[in-house]
């Protein structure tokens, strides 16, 4: 518990730092001096704070979605971005944009969620039909399926001249977040809480169907609940900021290294670490080539993979 509080404090400090980074001049003085700078205040309220909130919400919810995904697929190496979920959501967005351009964002998001749900369910269905599921095959199936769905999306996006939008959905970028354009993400907070409430069930489901049934629970219902949470979170993130690679993979894995796999204990940690990870990535993306920005997704890809490799190889060296 002490460590958890410490981690939360670090996140809050990081969050404060992130508020004061950017092109517009926002500093402590400009805000809290006797004559506050109106412009700075506006920047803070319209851009900085919404951005910070979006970063934290995305980090928390994607991390937890990754954890759920790993429990449902019973494999440590899958996440929404590598199991076709994110790609399905993009395809859904594309479909909605092409077929019903007037649809409000919420409607498009629902369509995207539906697609994400279908894509993820398809993934699990395929897994079920594969006779020899080795640890190796599962993530590969996800990658291949993601590739197939992505190629469909690219094919149609190319035809309808929407490749650029598709790129925006697949590359997470917080620079476009403004007040009024991110509020959907609050729903992900609710979904994350749902996951926490049902944590024990997911832990049990993670041990397999017969194990779950033996304990008197309905496996299919737990899976369905998990699917809905993962799909909706992914769709919302894809629609509002775009996908962040690796988050759902690395954060749960790191947490599991230290905490084990009891979802009740690990979900809060995954949420906090996820938020911290995205926050760091976003801050770096803003600082590294000031005044230009590098999308958080790119930074997350670089940092996430380096960190993951380090953990992987270090752990291996210790075992060896």
């Amino acid at each position: 518990m002490k460590r958890f509080v410490a981690a939360a404090v670090v996140i809050v400090l990081l969050a404060l730092v992130s508020l004061f980074i950017g092109v517009g001049n926002v500093s402590w003085n400009s805000l809290f001096s006797p004559s506050p700078d109106e412009r700075a205040l506006q920047v803070l309220v319209i851009s900085r704070i919404p951005r910070l909130l979006a970063v934290i919400l995305v980090g928390m919810s994607l991390g937890v979605a990754g954890l759920l995904m790993q429990m449902l697929a019973r494999n440590r190496f899958v996440e929404p971005a590598t199991a076709g979920t994110a790609e399905s959501a993009s395809l859904g967005m594309l479909t909605a944009t092409v077929l019903a351009p007037q649809l409000p964002v919420l409607g498009k998001m629902l369509v995207a969620s539906g697609f994400a749900l279908a894509g993820t369910a398809l993934f699990l269905l395929i897994l079920k039909r594969i006779p020899l599921r080795s640890v190796l095959v599962v993530p590969l199936v996800g990658l291949v399926l993601a590739g197939v769905i992505d190629s469909v999306t690219t094919f149609f996006a190319y035809r309808f001249d929407l490749l650029q939008s598709v790129n925006a959905w697949t590359t997470g970028d917080f620079s476009t977040v403004l007040r009024g354009r991110y509020e959907l993400l609050w729903v992900t907070l609710g979904l994350t809480c749902c996951a926490y409430v049902a944590a024990d069930r997911f832990t049990v489901a993670g041990m397999g169907e017969s194990f779950t049934t033996n304990l008197g629970m309905r496996y299919s219902r737990i899976v369905a609940l998990g699917l809905v949470i993962v799909s909706m979170v992914t769709a919302m993130v894809v629609v509002t900021v775009g996908m962040i690679p690796f988050l759902g993979l690395i954060v749960p894995n790191v947490v599991s290294l230290f905490m084990g796999d009891n979802a009740r204990r690990s979900i809060p940690w995954v949420a906090v670490c996820g938020a911290g990870f995205v926050l760091v990535c976003d801050v770096i993306g803003r600082v590294v080539r000031f005044p230009y920005e590098i999308p958080g997704a790119t930074i997350a890809g670089v940092m996430g993979s380096v960190l993951f490799l380090y953990l992987l190889l270090r752990r291996d060296a210790r075992v060896g």
Partner: peptide, 9 residues
């Protein structure tokens, strides 16, 4: 796979 993502990113 992770190296692949690293190279791409």
């Amino acid at each position: 796979v992770v190296l692949g993502v690293l190279f791409r990113s």
